[in-house]
Structures are given as structure tokens and as C-alpha cells.
């Protein structure tokens, strides 16, 4: 059974909402869906809203890091938004770090990070 997964375009960013207890199939679909949508909409970044997620095991954490790497290879940035305190505690105790992935307290802050990132990019030019 695959839980509902939504990937929508908001401004020039993809917003992917992760269900509370995704199975491996859903996680694989998420990865494919994000990369396909990136190409289709030519967005500059991805916000992964994990505020509903209640459990993050090492497989899930690795899949998120891997997805962020893939998004980066395609020229985008990923921000993980809204990790619950219980999930943050568990993930850290398990010894997992979301290395190289931006994080934000909520979706709004995540969008802000991506907006700022593109501004900095323009200033550099």
C-alpha cells in the first residue's frame, strides 16, 4: 500500500509533502517524482515537508540525502522542512546526520532559504 504523496510547484520551487509512515515504494516514488518534476518545471529548488513524518529510520534518512544529492546534480537545492522534535532526537541518537542537506523549521522558512540562495547567486553574477 502506497501512502499519498504530493509534489506541487509553488513559485519556482517544488514542494514535496511526505506522508507520516512511507513504505520503501513511496520513498522510491518520491525520488523519481521530484527529479521528473524538476526537469518538467525547471525549478531551482525542492522543499521536502517532513512535518507529518513520525519515524525516520536509516533507510529513509539515506534516501533523503541521496535525493538531495540528485537534485544538486541537476542544479537545484534541497531544504528539509519541519522535522518533529521526537524525530530529531531519534535520528541524532541513531547516529544519522543529514549531511549536506539544508534544514528549516517549517515550509515558510525553507522557501525563504531558497529565495535567499537565488538572490545571492544573482549578486555573485
Amino acid at each position: 500500500m502506497t501512502e499519498n504523496l504530493s509534489i506541487i510547484k509553488v513559485e519556482d520551487v517544488l514542494l514535496a509533502t511526505i506522508p507520516s509512515d512511507p513504505d520503501d515504494e513511496t520513498i522510491a516514488k518520491l525520488q523519481d517524482g521530484i527529479l521528473e518534476s524538476m526537469k518538467k518545471y525547471k525549478v531551482k529548488g525542492v522543499v521536502m515537508d517532513i512535518s507529518a513524518v513520525e519515524t525516520m529510520d536509516s533507510y529513509f534518512a539515506r534516501a533523503i540525502m541521496e535525493t538531495a544529492q540528485m537534485v544538486s546534480l541537476m542544479g537545484g537545492e534541497t531544504v528539509i522542512a519541519g522535522m518533529r522534535p521526537s524525530v530529531a532526537i531519534t535520528t541524532a541518537q541513531l547516529g544519522l546526520t543529514l549531511k549536506g542537506v539544508h534544514t528549516a523549521i517549517d515550509v515558510e522558512s525553507a522557501m525563504e532559504i531558497l529565495r535567499k540562495g537565488s538572490q545571492e547567486g544573482r549578486e555573485k553574477k
Binding site: 513520525e54 519515524t55 541518537q93 541513531l94
Partner: peptide
């Protein structure tokens, strides 16, 4: 507690995997 539930469920998920 919510945090302990997360700990137990995550541990179970790792071992099941």
C-alpha cells in the same frame, strides 16, 4: 511518550529491515 514511541518504532524498523 511521543519521543520514546519514536525511539522504539525506529529501533524496530532498523531490525526489521
Amino acid at each position: 511518550s511521543i519521543t520514546d514511541v519514536a525511539r522504539i518504532v525506529t529501533a524496530a524498523s532498523e531490525l526489521a529491515r
